[in-house]
Design a protein around this nucleic acid. Structure first.
Lengths: 166, 166
DNA sequence: CCCCAAACTCACCTAAACGTCAAGGTTAGG
DNA sequence: CCTAACCTTGACGTTTAGGTGAGTTTGGGG
């Protein structure tokens, strides 16, 4: 336990984390962090003078979004990247919303954000219905099996009754 | 268009299909079919004397189940295989249900099938809630954006009002 | 100032999931 | 029986998503 708890003062005293700490907290490897950065999934974090990466809370949140989307949708990283990038555009819009600028320009940006979000939403909806479908099918099957079991319990030796679906 | 529409009479006149036709109809490549067979995801189909693969309707349904699960869950093929194998056990159970055999043995089999199905169901449920979560979040965001848009429309030049969540 | 844990940058390796020839056998219409 | 279209089994290539060192720097407690 030698070089811990430093992370210096890049902008002030926000809780910046080194790669090892991020890895430990999020459960991904350091390699994965560098790999995601290389692939553009994570934007290059700030570094300290020596070159050590310093991750901000926002970086970590982005990472966790990536992990979530990945394990939820099972898409290739390239597509995950597109989605997260879209999110980022959206976030950026939120940041630039307050400053009163050209109303028409803002309108256009919002429209774009809506479009992007709608695409994502549609995609998720498809998944959702497909999953729900499968869910109900499994439940149906469970019910059938439990029915059979009940048959067996009630008639100790022979003559089962139901021959229902599935 | 020379050697088409044959598929002979392996067992009677069921609609057996050659690999090319299966590929065309299901949208997977022949390579994928052979690969899945090699990996045990599809059981070796019947062949004609010359060695050409002949796929039954059941084979095709199994294939489509695999595709469905794969694109729905995004799991590695090894896990998909386990799930489909489990399904097969279940199906087999259904086939062997009618023939009156040892009741206790059947009971055990049904219990096993229930267990397997429950595991799958649980897994799906997790996915379902996660997806629903993301779905509602996206909807929330859409609502926010539309609110902003409405603000812009109502006040032609400046002074937006809401600064809600997201 | 010294030292070692922790990070850095290549570079090479792997496993999964196919894609892509190559060389040759099979089928069936003409 | 011939031939075009289809299939078969290899074998090797590719992409994705990292894993695994090797060799080198950096950071900060003692």
């Amino acid at each position: 336990m030698a070089p811990k708890r430093n992370a210096s003062d890049v902008a002030a005293d926000e809780p910046y984390l080194q790669i090892g700490e991020v890895a430990e907290r999020t459960g991904v490897t350091q390699r994965t962090l560098r790999f995601y950065e290389e692939k553009g999934l994570l934007k290059p974090p700030t570094r300290m003078e020596g070159g050590f990466r310093l991750y901000s809370e926002a970086d970590i949140q982005r990472l966790e979004r990536i992990r979530h989307l990945k394990q939820l949708l099972g898409f290739p990283l390239a597509e995950i990247k597109e989605m997260v990038d879209a999110d980022e555009v959206k976030m950026q819009l939120r940041a630039e919303y307050r400053p009163e600028a050209e109303a028409s320009e803002k309108r256009a940006q919002i429209l774009k954000a809506i479009e992007v979000t709608e695409r994502q939403h549609e995609l998720i909806c498809q998944k959702a219905t497909a999953i729900a479908d499968m869910q109900s099918k499994l439940e149906e099957r469970l019910a059938t099996f439990r029915g059979w079991l009940a048959d067996l319990e009630s008639t100790p030796s022979s003559a089962p009754k139901s021959k229902a679906n599935v």
